[in-house]
Design a protein around this nucleic acid. Structure first.
Lengths: 159, 159
DNA sequence: GGATCGCATGTTATGATATAACGTTCGCGG
DNA sequence: CCGCGAACGTTATATCATAACATGCGATCC
């Protein structure tokens, strides 16, 4: 896994690849990759930024795929629960996972100026946290590691 | 700084000590430790758990110290901004800092069974995150590191 | 085939969290 | 005394999230 979010990349290609990976993962695990769930993932992949549940819902509405909050939340919950998307606690928002299928402990770097969100490997930070927790007898199930600051572009612009 | 939250301790003493420390810090930095701000910190210290802004507000209401959300949010913002309390993103809630005044990068261990929250030093995890971010040119300003799982007591009880 | 079940979805209603905007108070320095 | 800034009071509203119940639909069992 590599960091994604601040550099340019072949977006069309990365969407297609992610979708295919998730499709296969669902088939392998017996999960239903339904039209709404698929479309929500596509929306997150298209935007490639953190989106609120209501942002996603707006798109679904225009397409006649659902109009009430639970529709969006259920699809997002499914994607998050299975590691196909992540929830950014700081923003109450969601992003598509950049490495679906890979076991990983993502960290998020959130730009407070332009709202870009990058996902970066959080292995070391996560290990440090788990070992500290283990010493206390705390059983870690999920970890959220998020940094807020300025992305390279905004550092440059704002300087 | 040491971990606090899962073990017993002299609560009365720890409240008094924290209050005094914050009082002095405010005086030293020219910050106004007003009655509402002080009372909100006391409330957080009393409970010694994560409280929502509206939980705090309920207490303020009963005491005639304020009745509208902005009153609670403003006091909480002040405490968080100055390191006297922390915001738990995962819970949209607040806790009093267990080591006000000390420079620290706290991690939070959140028990999903009993909702206890422990604050533990996050130096290593935070350093790992900062160094990963630095390599990308991202300028970190704030870090949130939160683990959800089971506290020692609930591991024992639930096993 | 039809009964039944599980799971996803549709819908209504409401709950929970948070802030914009503007007015008022009060202490402090000019 | 006046002007200023910081905190506080109040109204209104924005934003995020879920409880609860109804509907549809394919799989399975007999």
């Amino acid at each position: 896994m590599e960091t994604k979010g601040f550099e340019h990349h072949d977006h069309h290609h990365c969407i297609a690849t992610s979708l295919r990976t998730v499709e296969e993962a669902c088939k392998a695990q017996g999960l239903q990759f339904t039209p709404v769930r698929r479309r929500v993932l596509e929306i997150l992949l298209d935007e490639h930024r953190a989106m609120g549940a209501y942002d996603v819902l707006d798109v679904l509405r225009k397409e006649g795929l659902g109009s009430q909050p639970p529709v969006a939340y259920r699809a997002l919950d499914f994607l998050v629960a299975n590691g196909f998307a992540h929830r950014i606690e700081r923003l109450n928002a969601f992003v598509a996972c950049t490495a679906p299928g890979e076991r990983h402990a993502p960290c998020f770097l959130i730009c407070r100026a332009c709202s870009a969100v990058a996902e970066t490997p959080g292995r070391r930070a996560s290990d440090a946290l788990r070992s500290a927790a283990g010493e206390l007898g705390f059983k870690v199930e999920r970890v959220a590691i998020e940094a807020e600051g300025l992305c390279p572009a905004c550092v440059e612009a704002g300087a």
